[in-house]
Design a protein around this nucleic acid. Structure first.
Lengths: 385, 385
DNA sequence: TGCACCGACCAAAGCGCTTTGGAAAACTTT
DNA sequence: AAAGTTTTCCAAAGCGCTTTGGTCGGTGCA
């Protein structure tokens, strides 16, 4: 007990001591040091030890740290100061067990071994989400799940209870995961939507169909009739909707749909390069390309430049632009005419909305549509001829 | 060996039961169903309930699930079967509290608000790491930390105890985080190294200096004298080392270092495009470019093509290639001559090594150098003139 | 003076798991 | 048949926190 008093006196004493002050304590053999620069302890300090040091009960210390009103202001300050000096922070697992809240959110990414379609978007989406989690005090736990193990995985995620909610990435057309998660009963939010299903789940999405409808209309208005679509695999919901928008615009203009002008695959530079090269070499090449990702669009531009053609004059290109930090679409005037919607912003919004859902499970599930503006860049112009 | 694996095996093995079988449970009013398709419970089943159901003690059920030898084979099967049917899997927080192991690994990414240098690499690195974690039964928790909050964050990460180890991304020259983590005493592994410091920590890296030395030598051997370097900001360790390799090759060839041929910044397409354009417009332009990322290299190629020049003839380009899934370096013959090392492979290796460290804290800290081969592509040729 | 009330604190009971230290039953051995 | 061994199981004590249901003085008020 004497050691504890000594510590208390010292703690209240004020200036941090540069010397390593050691205080023996009868209950533990650990040597306490008051300086963060000193030897690390074998094990972090816990609430019991902290409260013994302060000559307070665990109850009071816990309440002081968590901002409950039942503690005197002076006591609270003393507790906070000690916690700071001993670098105490509560064990998250124990806290989680006691409160029933994990304070972390799971991001589940389907790992189709064929197409890692989300890879290029990933860094930026996560960056946005993390910004939100940091302010909300949540952790982000990430799981990439092979397609065939998904169901098992979602069940476990609930039972294991180390996340309070899930963000679902890369929804597919008729994705069964929504129903699954609904049955399992874990709060979740979908980044994207599921075509062919009532929107009775929480989601954050953009209007892919409308975006590509407008993009295609724009190309048609410029006189283009042969417009190629370079899309992600159309089992992905977003890709399917983009295709619908594209086709709707062609139909309303009385332009037939030419399957030879549609190419699908991963969102890779080489898809853009390869598909554009191949199409441009045909007898009756397209005069415009519509791309589902700026990664693809850069490949298309390369194919165009390689042929000595000029993008925006000989060949027009419109792309969806996720505003990836490493592939900026020009500095002042955009390089590509694009339907633009920041994936990072989407990440932030998803995180915020899911945190709100968890905080208040009673409130209706949000269905948020982010804007996807059609912005004009230098990659489009009147169809030649 | 763990219950989770056992459960998984079962889940994949057996056919789902179509019938909804209800079993009353004396202690709780909940109706148990044996079918995943049935109504969700308000709260997942726990060990106590499961053991009451089986008329066994929690001890025995726990041991059966965790593969301990003290249970009869018949009993174990009975337990496993019930666990599968009730979709039981142990609460991770409780398990963590009891065992002292969180079964999860933290990835801490510095969030310099200026340069999000790791974004393009992120998706692929994480994909690799996740593959390893999945087999090891670990979760991946991700934290992006603003530069100025790092120290506090690392301290907390230990005290909060929800990760068993940390993978450190984006180490900088003289990075203080190594010492910090060492003092804190949490197992960690660095992806990369820290120049100007003894290598007494665990790391997985490539030999950036040697790679860029060889790359530069190759360009010199082709007759290039004016070789530009487009690098990441050189506070990043990998970028600093690449710069050293570049300079060493120039020095040994008696070529002076021209600061005007060195540009640093984010690993973005536009850096490549902008810097290359600007340099090529000079009276005495470089004949070759050395790029720190394939993202940059694509920008350089674009600048070259825009000028009607031919890459590999008029202008040579060598890049480091992280083998990003969405920016493949050609299909058969590589597009770019490159120092190649898969970031995804690095992710997998980091994860595996850290798991091994955690499993056996006694063993020496691994220092692993992954290969970075110089592979020849179509982007290099003899210097013109 | 007596009584209610309030402010400031505490002891102890969980949260769901693992693990220690038995203990009863089933076999062996002597 | 008694004594040891092995097998198979169990009760209960943690892990580190929160939270319930108090206690114990002091105040305010009649």
């Amino acid at each position: 007990m004497s050691c504890c008093n000594a510590a208390k006196t010292y703690l209240e004493g004020g200036l941090p001591n540069r010397d390593v002050l050691r205080l023996g304590c009868e209950k533990s053999k650990a040597l306490w040091t008051l300086d963060a620069k000193a030897q690390p302890r074998d094990t972090p300090m816990n609430l019991k030890e902290l409260s013994e040091h302060l000559n307070l009960s665990q109850t009071t210390v816990s309440r002081a740290l968590n901002g409950y009103p039942e503690v005197r202001e002076a006591t609270r300050r003393r507790v906070l100061e000690a916690a700071r000096q001993f670098n105490y922070s509560p064990n998250a697992r124990a806290k989680g067990l006691a409160t029933g809240r994990a304070m972390s959110i799971g991001h589940v990414i389907p790992l189709s071994n064929k197409h890692e379609i989300l890879n290029p978007l990933f860094g930026d989406f996560i960056t946005g989400a993390s910004e939100a989690y940091a302010t909300g005090g949540y952790e982000l736990v990430l799981t990439l799940v092979p397609d065939d193990e998904e169901a098992a995985h979602y069940h476990n995620i609930r039972a294991r209870g180390n996340v309070d909610g899930i963000i679902l990435h890369g929804p597919r057309v008729n994705d069964p995961r929504i129903d699954l998660l609904d049955r399992i009963g874990v709060p979740f939010l979908v980044h994207g939507r599921v075509f062919g299903r009532a929107e009775d789940y929480a989601f954050v999405d953009i209007d892919n169909e409308s975006a590509f409808l407008r993009a295609t209309r724009h190309l048609i208005a410029l006189g283009h009739r042969r417009i190629a679509l370079l899309n992600a695999v159309e089992t992905m919901d977003f890709a399917y909707r983009r295709r619908r928008g594209y086709e709707a615009a062609l139909r309303e203009a009385g332009i037939g749909i030419d399957r030879a002008l549609i190419e699908v695959g991963g969102m890779t530079e080489s898809l853009g390069m390869r598909a554009a090269s191949e199409m441009l070499d045909r007898p009756n090449p397209p005069t415009a390309f519509l791309c589902s990702s700026i990664v693809i669009a850069f490949g298309v531009e390369r194919a165009i430049l390689r042929r000595g053609l000029a993008m925006g004059e000989d060949i027009s290109v419109v792309t969806h632009d996720d505003v990836l930090s490493y592939l900026p679409n020009g500095t002042s005037e955009p390089l590509f005419t694009a339907t633009r919607s920041s994936i990072r912003e989407a990440g932030r919004t998803c995180a915020q909305e899911l945190m709100a859902m968890i905080a208040d499970p009673g409130k209706p599930r949000p269905g948020i549509m982010l804007d996807a503006d059609l912005i004009l860049g230098r990659s489009t112009g009147r169809a030649p001829g």
